[in-house]
């Protein structure tokens, strides 16, 4: 698969901090990509460079095989920033039309697409309403429509589910999957890890302006696993200790064990089988992204970072 976006040694320094400090990664076409990081990690700056709002101080952005040209490529990108809003006094239909035209769509084209999306998300009756009359969830839906309306190759969503109820969140989630299936690439920025685990194929974690993790969700989990297994036995044998592992938790018939260096999971099973115990279940405990996130980010608060000097 070819790449839609390649970042190479991207840097953006502000007067008081290195917002983005030498970040490189690439995104496959048609994938759903998670950009993670704590508050103030440099995510927004990174996204603003990808959307052409900021110019990088150094580094190279390649969009769809060519050097990124913000003036023309902007038509191919849909960006829903975290700090988002709409004109409160403007009618919803006119607003969608205006934003689509700003993306370079002709009026007829824009009308056709607006009608399609409004119908799909059951928003047809909203046309003449004003944004100030909408609930937060409704305006979020409208915001999503205006972001994807011009069928961008690259869709960037910064915290797309904030303020949405589970029903509407599922609706939007399905649309995101749908868009990815039709060939769009989605960059998904959030710090809600359970959503990332559910949606993303590939993630990058940034902290303090640097990339600290890069890989598929399964890969990363494998990388951070601690060889812990959970085992359920019908009845506990007399000797549960062995050289192969140490017991971390012992809770009635459930045990959590950590396998030592040089041993395999089979050694655990062997130990119990030899004692004639019936094993009811046995599975590996993989760390959640949340645990990984906290483990990496902990101790490097954004506060200390704001006093960091640029040399």
């Amino acid at each position: 698969m070819s790449k839609i976006l390649e970042l190479e040694a991207l840097r953006k320094y502000y007067a008081t901090q290195k917002a983005v400090d030498d970040i490189s990664f690439s995104i496959e076409k048609g994938s759903i990509f998670g950009l993670l990081g704590p508050n103030g990690a440099g995510k927004t700056t990174l996204l603003r460079m990808i959307t052409g709002i900021f110019y990088p101080d150094m580094g190279q952005i390649t969009f769809d095989g060519k050097p990124f040209d913000p003036l023309n490529d902007i038509r191919m990108i849909g960006y829903m920033p975290e700090e988002r809003g709409l004109y409160k006094k403007m009618k919803i239909g006119e607003q969608a039309l205006y934003l689509a035209q700003l993306k370079g769509l002709s009026k007829a084209e824009a009308m056709e697409k607006i009608k399609y999306w409004f119908k799909k998300l059951e928003m047809e009756t909203w046309w003449n309403k004003k944004v100030e009359d909408l609930s937060k969830g409704m305006s979020q839906k409208l915001q999503f429509v205006t972001t994807v309306l011009h069928e961008p190759k690259l869709i960037i969503l910064d915290e797309p589910f904030s303020g949405l109820d589970p029903l509407n969140a599922n609706l939007i989630k399905d649309e995101i999957f749908g868009l990815a299936q039709r060939g769009s690439t989605v960059i998904f920025s959030t710090h809600r890890m359970e959503q990332v685990e559910e949606i993303c194929d590939h993630i990058v974690l940034v902290n303090l302006g640097k990339k600290v993790l890069d890989g598929s969700v399964a890969e990363i989990k494998q990388k951070f696993k601690e060889n812990q297994f959970k085992i359920r036995l019908q009845e506990k044998p007399a000797n549960i200790n062995s050289d192969a592992f140490s017991v971390l938790q012992d809770h009635s018939n459930d045990l959590v064990v950590k396998i030592h260096e040089g041993f395999r999971s089979n050694d655990v099973l062997m130990h119990f089988l030899q004692q004639g115990t019936t094993i009811e279940s046995f599975h590996e405990i993989l760390p959640s992204l949340n645990e990984i996130f906290i483990r990496i980010v902990e101790g490097s608060s954004a506060l200390t970072r704001s006093f960091q000097k640029v040399d």
Binding site: I74, Y79, M80, P81, R84, Y87, K103
Partner: peptide
């Protein structure tokens, strides 16, 4: 109203 950034991206 936070629309500035939405528009600045176009």
């Amino acid at each position: 109203s936070r629309i500035a950034e939405v528009i600045i991206s176009s």
